[in-house]
Every structure is written in C-alpha cells, then in structure tokens.
C-alpha cells in the first residue's frame, strides 16, 4: 500500500493526490500548506479555519531545474514548479520530469511518485506535477 512521505500534506489513499488545504470561514481564502493558528488575510482565529481537500491540479506558473542540492533526500538535477491551483493558492512542489519555460501556462496535475519502500514493504509516495497539456513545450531542462 501507499504511505505519504508527509502525512500532514496529502492523503495517499486516493488514486490521484489530494492536498490537505484549509479555508477561512470569515474571508473565504484557501491556503496550502494548511494554516491552523490564524488566517493570514483577515486574522480570524483557529476556530474559523476549516480543513478542505484541494485537487492537486492547476496551471504551471514557473519552474526551475535545480543542479546543485545539499540535501541527501534527492539527487540533483530535479525540477521544481510553482503551480496556481484551480482551488486557489499558488503552491510549490516538484515536477515528475524536466521541462522548459515554454511549458509555463500549461495545465498540470499531480501523480504519485514512489520515493522508496519502507520497512513494512509500503511504497512511500509524494505528489509530483506532470504536464497534461504540453502545447508547444519542449523536453529539455530550464
């Protein structure tokens, strides 16, 4: 079975990644990562913040291929993305494959990426964005 690399951020049981967002009852703004202490826009307290599922799909706002990385969790090069979610917030995550800046503006949606297998034989996964509608996008690194 699938287990989440970061259980606080997404639900691994869905076939397609769904993100754990939050929404402010007072001003209606949606957040990801979720806010739990107070609203960043209007200052409403924790009781006014509600957990909401967010589809991990939207429009590619920008991307960058990282060639130098100090952490041991992932080997460079890899490509990161800024995605304007259909459900509201502009978020950052990883792409499943490299792309050029021509892909900016494309439709993207997340799929599960298997990072490793844990001691119980589960697949440890995280969402990574994949271009759905490539338009004129090329396949090189940006």
């Amino acid at each position: 079975m699938r287990v989440a690399a970061d259980p606080g951020l997404y639900d691994p049981e869905n076939p397609l990644p769904t993100l754990h967002g939050s929404r402010c009852d007072a001003c209606g703004t949606t957040f990801f990562p979720p806010l739990g202490i107070g609203c960043e826009i209007c200052g409403a307290g924790a009781e006014g913040l509600r957990a909401v599922p967010l589809a991990a799909a939207g429009t590619l706002h920008s991307l960058a291929t990282v060639y130098v990385h100090a952490g041991e969790d992932i080997e460079a090069p890899f490509t990161v993305a800024e995605v304007q979610l259909d459900d509201g917030p502009l978020i950052r995550g990883l792409m499943s494959e490299p792309a050029t800046i021509d892909a900016i503006g494309s439709r993207v949606a997340a799929q599960w990426a298997e990072l490793r297998t844990d001691a119980d034989g589960n697949d440890v996964v995280e969402p990574r964005f994949r271009i759905e509608d490539r338009g004129d996008a090329g396949g090189g690194a940006a």
Binding site: A5, I74, V80
Partner: peptide, 25 residues
C-alpha cells in the same frame, strides 16, 4: 514546523531561479 510539497528542496537560489524563468517567459 511549516512543511510544503517542495520539502526543503527550494533554497534561495531556486526561489530566484523560479522568478528568473517566469521573467524570461
């Protein structure tokens, strides 16, 4: 304890690389 999908893989030079690519676009 704030985490996001990028999980520490976006350090300052990549924050600005994202801006640079968007500026080029």
């Amino acid at each position: 304890g704030v985490r996001d999908l990028a999980a520490g893989r976006i350090v300052p030079f990549t924050h600005f690389a994202l801006l640079a690519n968007r500026y080029m676009f």
